[in-house]
Nucleic acid binder design. Structure first.
Lengths: 242, 242
DNA sequence: ACAAAAGTGTTGACTATACACCCATGG
DNA sequence: CCATGGGTGTATAGTCAACACTTTTGT
């Protein structure tokens, strides 16, 4: 097949994506499992086509896994240790290699291409978790959301990548007003607060938080949301886009 | 010669360095001129060896141009538009190609290697300008310091790279206490202030600035510096390393 | 004594945080 | 009418910028 070679993709350069979602008071990351028996986890990743910008490559990879266009995403760091090789997958796990070769998914050239040392550009993305139906990649066994605090050990430096992505998210959440990408169309102030608490992993004072967010002047107050609970009904808000 | 091929370097991936120095109240950037007659300017750059981390590659490139080890440096962004090709140099300027081939500096394979589309990792570095004696690269005609506000038009997106580097420097100068890398061993408070004014391109109030910097608790006050001027002698300071 | 520039102190505005209170809602 | 949680107001502390004043230096 020769899927991977220098005519299609740039050699030894990859993109790995830390896709953040938010649900049930937890910040989650979308990761793939390669194989059931041995359970190898990775971040969703891919390669850069010759005529494609790196941003578009990242968008394409994200769309493949989430089905979503127009995702908020941003590069956060390049990972370039010479030890970044896929040996974990392609050498230790002979059975995988045999299987892929047998199934004709990959040929020898592809495997040679994939087992070189790779420099990887880290992107992080923020998505409304309700809109995503995770799609398996070619080599994936499953794709699932994991709590960012309870991620399994992933290949190479992928766990470290998540730490860098989270650090960048924390630095940018306020400043760039990007948190609303993680929430549905409308939301209550409490939901915003719980999102912030999940991201920064610390509590915020309710009243001061409300003041801070409203003072940003980016939210539009809608009708009240009657939950049936025996207390005052909270307002719903929507992110005002300009 | 075949200097450049996939056995030596990673293909289609480069590093470009924005090297900041500070002198005479001006923030300066070290840039190379390729050829006298046509005057093509570029940022110092290079490639990544197969067994080398990207950080070490950046250090090596910086040492080649500045002669300095242990420079403060940090990656700030990846530039990956598919239009990033060296055509400006290698096609429009036939004379260069002819010259290099004639001199045996590069052969056809090298030129093919160099004229592909490149993804470039941007690093910025902060150096004590007094310690640097700029070194010409293999293809350089000259290497000089230019005021960051008065840079000539450089190839590809190199001017844009400087803007991103400066933006990152501004964001990190305070937070990471890195400004002292731009100053000599000892300095007066006025020199620190003028450095900050050069970086942010705006004035700071003298007394408040002094308070802010001293409150960081990273400076050690030394003896006074008698300049011979008819005014109170300022103290010298040194950056306390822990 | 004076000008120039460094060092220090004081004030007022703004911001962040803690505390207090009131209000709507369903049982 | 009460418990619960949402919305809003106030007081306090801390931070930051503007202004004022004092000190040191060489002429």
């Amino acid at each position: 097949m020769k899927l991977f070679n220098e005519q299609n993709f740039i050699n030894q350069l990859s993109i790995d994506c830390v896709i953040f979602g938010y649900k049930e008071q937890e910040l989650k990351v979308l990761i793939s499992k390669i194989k059931i028996e041995t359970s190898i986890w990775t971040l969703p990743g891919g390669f850069i086509m010759q005529e494609e910008s790196i941003n578009n490559a990242a968008k394409r990879i994200l769309e493949e896994r989430t089905g979503l266009k127009d995702i908020y995403l941003e590069q956060f760091r390049v990972f370039g240790e010479p030890s970044r090789v896929n040996h974990e997958i392609y050498e230790n796990i002979d059975s995988l290699k045999t299987e892929w070769l047998a199934k004709g998914i990959l040929d020898e050239n592809d495997i040679n291409w994939l087992t070189k040392r790779f420099v990887s550009i880290g992107y992080y993305a923020l998505v409304d978790i309700n809109k995503v139906s995770p799609q398996k990649g070619m080599l994936d066994d499953s794709v699932e959301w994991y709590n960012v605090k309870e991620l399994p050990k992933m290949i190479m430096d992928h766990n470290e990548m998540v730490l860098f992505a989270l650090e960048t998210l924390r630095q940018n959440l306020d400043q760039k007003l990007i948190g609303f990408n993680l929430l549905p169309e409308t939301f209550t102030m409490k939901e915003v607060q719980e999102l912030y608490e999940a991201v920064y992993d610390k509590p915020f004072a309710r009243n001061n938080f409300q003041k801070k967010i409203l003072d940003l002047n980016v939210l539009e107050r809608l009708e009240k949301k009657f939950t049936g609970a025996a207390n005052k009904a909270p307002y719903l808000y929507r992110f005002r886009n300009q």
